[in-house]
Design a protein around this nucleic acid. Structure first.
Lengths: 218, 218
DNA sequence: AATAGCAATATTGTCGACAATGAGTAAATA
DNA sequence: TATTTACTCATTGTCGACAATATTGCTATT
């Protein structure tokens, strides 16, 4: 799979801004001033506008006519909504993955889990961050449903990452999440679409509740 | 709910183009030439670009750097994928609607069904077109999940309509679809989220299969 | 002092021109 | 004749300036 790297100016600015927004160096809810960005990044306003439009496309930014663009607001309520959508879409992704992944892809998925099991120390948060995302991505791509892949990879997942980073969601749930992943992988291996969907939905519901608990404490 | 009408030039062009694409007067898969559109609609290329970007946002158009924008291609395979996503998202919408719709909204929903039942003659395709969409919209909005609403109303549904129009999907299934709607509404009225989701998923699966059968005949 | 209206300013929307890139064509070479 | 290469043309990307709109701050009036 050849990934076309950023050729155009707007591309670069888009990636820069997206990173800044996800990482929080541009705060959520803040306004994006075109002229200002234009001078700081040393490109024309047209480029900035183009980049902002692409940010709108992935739901990281909202724009009002004649008023301007703002980074989306983050809230506990918004996070719940996001996870409800994830539950629905990734459940379907798991179902389709059980039907459509090749034997090779399934083997790779299991190998990924084993390598994680080997390297991860209990209580370490590495797994949650990189490994978890990796696992979910493989299943999403394994669905082979382009519509689904686009919505999740280009739309939802940057928002998910934004919440993870800015709400500081790493923490425990490492080992339990690992087991959940294991069972999902097993269902896929058995080509049990029903079960794969159900387990994935439970997996996401669990982590939603886990997050909601944490937030209400703080 | 106050809907802000098209103020800006790009707005108008966006709506015009979207209509033309959905209705098929701009063919699926065809290229969008910026200069050409600019002269026919008598606006600058900037507003055309803006409009095209918004079409990209609702997945009706795809753009490649330095090459240009094309209307998405329609195919039987693409339609199946679309309906899988609908099944997943609208299932969740029905679940949430059962939890979140007000008593008033539920009453209105039932009244809508009754008025359809009164006016619709068997074999008439009116119901499929307007009534079906109306029913589904109410449930989507009833979910009260903004993320979900945006994805479906701004993204998926224009594509659905595009397939409906251009693949000529009206046909029968009127009366059976009506019954399915009735049972979904009942589940929502009883606040049975589980059942509402299940029935909605089945409803969409049925119509997917119905369409697939038709297409393979022709 | 509070508010309404108005003027000044800041910001976004739109425009036409130029630069950069891709696509198509014809000539040149093997 | 097939293939490569250089050139031309068509199309998209980027720019700075101007127009239209929203926001802000001031003044006047009650």
């Amino acid at each position: 799979m050849i990934s076309d790297q950023p050729i155009t100016s707007s591309d670069k600015i888009f990636y820069l801004l997206r990173n800044a927004i996800v990482e929080g160096s541009i705060k959520h809810g803040s306004k994006l001033n075109e002229a200002e960005l234009s001078t700081t990044y040393e490109v024309s306003r047209a480029v900035i506008r183009e980049a902002i439009n692409r940010l709108v496309t992935c739901h990281l930014v909202e724009r009002k006519a004649n008023v301007g663009a703002r980074v989306v607001e983050l809230s506990e309520h918004g996070l719940i909504e996001l996870y409800q959508v994830r539950e629905s879409l990734e459940g379907m992704a798991a179902r389709l993955a059980a039907q459509n992944m090749t034997q090779q892809e399934i083997a790779d998925l299991n190998q990924l889990l084993e390598s994680h099991f080997a390297t991860v120390k209990p209580g370490e948060s590495y797994y949650q961050e990189a490994g978890d995302v990796d696992f979910h991505y493989r299943i999403i791509l394994g669905s082979k449903n382009q519509q689904l892949i686009t919505i999740l990879v280009e739309g939802i997942y940057h928002l998910v990452r934004m919440y993870r980073v800015q709400f500081g969601m790493a923490g425990p749930r490492v080992t339990t999440a690992f087991d959940e992943h294991k069972y999902i992988a097993m269902a896929i291996k058995n080509r049990d679409a029903e079960l794969a969907e159900m387990l994935m939905r439970r997996h996401i519901t669990y982590s939603k509740n886990n997050i909601a608990d944490k937030l209400s404490q703080s």
